[in-house]
Design a protein around this nucleic acid. Sequence first.
DNA 1: TTCCGTTGGAGAGTGCGACTATCTAAACAT
DNA 2: ATGTTTAGATAGTCGCACTCTCCAACGGAA
Lengths: 214, 214
Amino acid sequence: MKLAELSERSGVSTATIKYYLREGLLQPGRRVTATQAEYGEEHLRRLRLVRALIQVGRVPVSTTREVLSALGDESLDQHSRIGVAVEALPHAPLPVEDDPATERARHEVAKLLDRLDWDDSRGSGPSSPAYGTLVTAVAALTRLGYPCGVEELLPYARAVSQLSVTELDLVARFPEEERVEAAVALTVLYEPVLLSLRRLAETDESGRRFMNTE
Amino acid sequence: MKLAELSERSGVSTATIKYYLREGLLQPGRRVTATQAEYGEEHLRRLRLVRALIQVGRVPVSTTREVLSALGDESLDQHSRIGVAVEALPHAPLPVEDDPATERARHEVAKLLDRLDWDDSRGSGPSSPAYGTLVTAVAALTRLGYPCGVEELLPYARAVSQLSVTELDLVARFPEEERVEAAVALTVLYEPVLLSLRRLAETDESGRRFMNTE
DNA sequence: TTCCGTTGGAGAGTGCGACTATCTAAACAT
DNA sequence: ATGTTTAGATAGTCGCACTCTCCAACGGAA
């Protein structure tokens, strides 16, 4: 397959594919002559993954490169590769220190994780970016006067805990060499699914309660 | 309160506050002289909301302006104001038409919403941005060969349906004039909460299954 | 064999979004 | 009197994701 065909079949312009090649998001094709290279199905597949991460998952290009390099890092076991890839994904800014709302938020988050049996030796400790994002968001809500203590957070935690089990069931069904990619793709691409379903559910529930039905 | 104090108490630089004033995200202060204005607690509160939406919720500045104007639109009832504000929020790109994966995705999403008793006359129909985001994400997963039919989506839908009930309970506890802002703030700011909890849950579950425990 | 279109490679340019800096004249603050 | 702060306006910066332009080397059809 030549560049033009790769572009055609993926719906990505040749200019953008060249850009991704330059940025190291795609392996160079097999060089046939000085000005010709041949691409295979695996290039098409990788390109589709890259596009999905960038366009649907809103992952920045430089981050995508890091995620992809974690995918192929043979020196790590499956859990570590998934961990490295997920840590590289975009997160909200780290919490502002020296702030009373951040202090309270840290405290509530610590209490929450205490009540769940999540083992932070597996990578969910206070230093992980996801933990920081959680603290930042809880602090912002606190500053605005909206409740988000353990009582409010627990239902969310229990819900996503359930979901993560069914999701990893899905991942486990793939052959071992495809599992890390599956975990990353599902982590990133199920986020918009989750968020849009939530917005639809909220719209429905809000209508049920607050709509004028004359 | 002068500009400098507003800046101090909010942690936002005076240059950025001026920028927000220019962009219409903040009401001008009460003009005392030609070169002096007085800001009140409501400015501080609004500024904190703006910052939370922009920094934590990653809402673009122009979108924030639209959301805020929906908040104060007296001509709409509560549900419509929430609807307008939520529709303005950022969404993944609309689905690519004339694409087999998009067709399949539309079909699966329609089946899913059929099985739930969500009433699309309330604003969750196929033309809403959240619906489009859902189709886009499902199509991307489909193209990559990951399963996301009704069977996989239903658990997500049921989970967020539960959450939206408890969330709207929270909103309903506020006095009527604060409800729309509460709905918007909770919609936007619980998103990072949900996503970071999910990543923590997945990290934990992945560790439980795939970690080398020697 | 002669062209016209395509390719890989590399650098420069574009458009956008979110600030940030500079400037001016007025008005406090000491 | 004088140094600081302010509103208001304009211009500049920075990062990001492309997108454009060139070039010399092919490769396929006439």
